[in-house]
């Protein structure tokens, strides 16, 4: 208080506010760079774009959050009424200029975020386009654009509750093997209910709608084993409906294809079926569920226990 008496109060206010804004900016910048570590590893071309956008919004969000809660904290510390003091605070009713400022500033901020996100959105769309087709009409074998007509589709077939991946070479697998740095094309198909094709490390998610076929594409950029999870609630054993995505070098991928093509089909990964059998053995206790669909016949049942990152 003594300080305020000596210096012009307007100047000290400006200095105080600029100092607070500076601290807020520094902390927001730190938070934004820290936010990358909250996400899984980046394993697709899309991931860095999403993460940058997330860091950007984390920064802005932190700035606003700290700004607001800083004021609340200040008020809590310095504007508390002493006990039994019921006198009034400073009776100002409003300030139209201030109101206009805090209507317009968020508006511009929101427009900025929207423009940035729309750009990222377009980029992601170009990285991996998706189109919905009616399953009753003709199935697409090739995408419309030229680049795609070179490749063929991996069919992703989702069921209650298992995944099956059909490769153009004519075999199928319970795990999704992908070559690194190559654009792959999928047809997402559901045999029963809505499922979600979600690979956190790729930052990609697409609902699979029964009655439609969705063509989808992505480019993995990092070798490793990642989780593919069903993200749209699909009934009793929903949480068991996950498998691994294995991104490997082109040679290893080719080798895997050559090896798997020759294998005899066996029961694929079907954790739900296993648990359901156990439930039946124990006397079918619990609430009603439809029975899991039979295990898909696959050439490579994979190894669900292999360690995954992200």
């Amino acid at each position: 208080m003594n300080l305020k008496d000596n210096i012009n109060p307007k100047i000290s206010l400006i200095i105080g506010i600029s100092f607070a804004v500076f601290i807020d900016l520094v902390l927001s910048k730190l938070m934004a760079s820290w936010s990358y570590s909250w996400l899984p590893v980046q394993a697709s071309k899309a991931a860095p774009y999403v993460d940058n956008l997330f860091a950007f919004e984390t920064g802005i969000g932190t700035f606003i959050f700290l700004g607001c809660s800083g004021v609340i904290g200040w008020v809590l510390l310095f504007n508390r009424a002493p006990k039994y003091d019921e006198s009034y605070g400073e009776p100002f009713e409003g300030n139209v200029k201030l109101e206009i400022v805090w209507t317009l500033v968020p508006l511009f901020l929101v427009i900025a975020i929207a423009i940035y996100s729309t750009k990222v959105n377009t980029t992601l769309q170009n990285l991996g386009e998706k189109t919905k087709y009616d399953s009753q009409k003709e199935l697409p074998t090739y995408l419309d654009n030229n680049e795609a007509s070179a490749g063929t589709f991996i069919d992703v077939i989702s069921r209650q509750w298992s995944w099956e991946f059909k490769y153009p070479e004519g075999f199928s697998s319970s795990e999704l093997h992908l070559p690194i740095n190559e654009k792959v094309y999928f047809r997402l198909i559901s045999k029963d209910v809505i499922h979600g094709f979600y690979i956190p490390a790729f930052r990609l998610k697409q609902d699979i709608i029964p009655g439609s076929i969705i063509s989808y594409s992505l480019t993995p950029t990092r070798k490793g084993i990642y989780r593919l999870r069903d993200s749209m609630f699909s009934g009793a054993y929903f949480s068991q409906n996950q498998t691994n995505v294995i991104v490997e070098s082109k040679d290893a991928y080719q080798e895997w294809i050559n090896k798997t093509v020759k294998k005899v089909p066996v029961d694929g990964l079907n954790q739900a079926g296993f648990l359901y059998k156990k439930r039946l053995e124990k006397g079918d206790k619990g609430w009603a569920t439809i029975s899991p669909s039979p295990s898909p016949q696959v050439n490579d049942p994979g190894n669900p226990d292999s360690a995954h990152e992200g």
């Binding site: 999403v50 919004e57 606003i64 975020i113 996100s117 993200s231």
Partner: peptide
């Protein structure tokens, strides 16, 4: 204030595609 900020994040299509339904 906190929930509002995560709300704007969720409104952002690319972020929502990652964190939606999580």
């Amino acid at each position: 204030i906190f929930g509002g900020i995560t709300g704007v994040m969720l409104a952002t299509v690319p972020i929502d595609i990652h964190v939606g339904n999580t």
